[in-house]
Design a binder for these strands. Structure first.
Length: 292
DNA sequence: TGCCAGGGCTGGG
DNA sequence: CCCAGCCATGGC
């Protein structure tokens, strides 16, 4: 049984780690010495590009890597996803700008909690808040030699046992009572996040929106990044700006009309198209994405 | 410094 | 249905 670093080659084509791990869908990945380091579940993970795929490392034992392949969605045929996008100038430019960007399949609780914390926050700040939250409330997990202490994302049960003041100490401001209430509701069995993906998407969305602090946008993030619903389409300030400027340049659409548009125009993988739009808007004008 | 950030809720037209 | 104001906090 190997308790040190163990590694594995994960086959994948058209997989860009930087675009995927640094496009605002996940908040715990860091580029260090040319490799991406993060935490998946209760495991430290290091990833780097390799011929015909990804070289992955974690702390042993690991006789099975299905958990990581599932998280990375490395088996998804990206080519067919991109072919499902509408063939227009905006999406063609997005595809060029975001080559190799994948959607992850994240843990629904971590995803829900993270996006409750995301409202009117910049991505760098969301990362800071989540870093503090994991440090204060997460469980210590095995880390590679030379690395500092490492913590997983706190469970709903753990956060449910905390206080609003302790959460506010993680710099999350008015989001603290929302996170605490969500943690208590989930820990108490009021919402089975692990089964959400088996429901019709509208029903799943309805259950999420019952939570205080969770509206359409955050619900759609959880549905897309944590439950695998390919047609969930989060509309944040960047995506709204993209749609208005690139698809409705003459006059800004009424909210209802914009909702109808994103619901019908982008095809069977509209959530994927949304992430390409988001990343395209955020990175155009910049030379590199490696700002964190 | 003031503006803005992967929003949501509330109260008023 | 639509909109303005508000909610904390920090990067730029």
């Amino acid at each position: 049984m190997n308790l040190g670093i163990v590694s594995c080659h994960i086959p994948a084509r058209d997989y860009d780690l930087a675009a995927t791990l640094d496009c605002g869908q996940a908040f715990r990945w860091t580029l260090r010495d040319g490799a991406w380091e993060g935490v998946v579940g209760s495991r430290w993970v290091r990833l780097r590009a390799a011929p015909e795929g990804i070289q992955a490392e974690t702390m042993g034992p690991a006789d099975d890597w299905a958990w990581l392949k599932f998280h990375l969605q490395s088996d998804v045929d990206l080519g067919s996803v991109i072919l499902s996008f509408p063939d227009d100038a905006v999406m063609r430019a997005s595809v060029i700008a975001c080559r190799g960007l994948r959607l992850l399949r994240q843990d629904p609780w971590e995803c829900l909690a993270s996006f409750i914390l995301s409202s009117t926050k910049q991505i760098v700040q969301i990362r800071q808040i989540i870093g503090l939250l994991c440090l204060r409330f997460g469980e210590r997990i095995p880390a590679p030699p030379g690395s500092g202490p490492l913590y997983d994302f706190p469970t709903a049960e753990r956060l449910a046992a905390s206080t609003e003041a302790e959460l506010r100490d993680c710099q999350m401001g008015f989001r603290a009572p929302n996170l605490l209430a969500a943690a208590r509701f989930v820990a108490g069995g009021g919402l089975d996040l692990q089964r959400l993906h088996t429901l019709p998407v509208a029903e799943a969305r309805g259950k999420l929106i019952e939570l205080r602090g969770v509206g359409e946008k955050i619900a759609n993030c959880v549905l897309l990044f944590g439950c695998g619903f390919q047609q969930a389409f989060p509309v944040d300030v960047w995506v709204r700006k993209a749609i208005r400027e690139l698809y409705f340049p003459k006059r800004r659409p009424a909210p209802r009309r914009l909702a109808k548009f994103v619901d019908t125009y982008f095809g069977t993988h509209s959530g994927y198209a949304q992430q390409y739009l988001f990343h395209y808007m955020r990175t155009r004008g910049k030379s590199r994405v490696s700002d964190r």
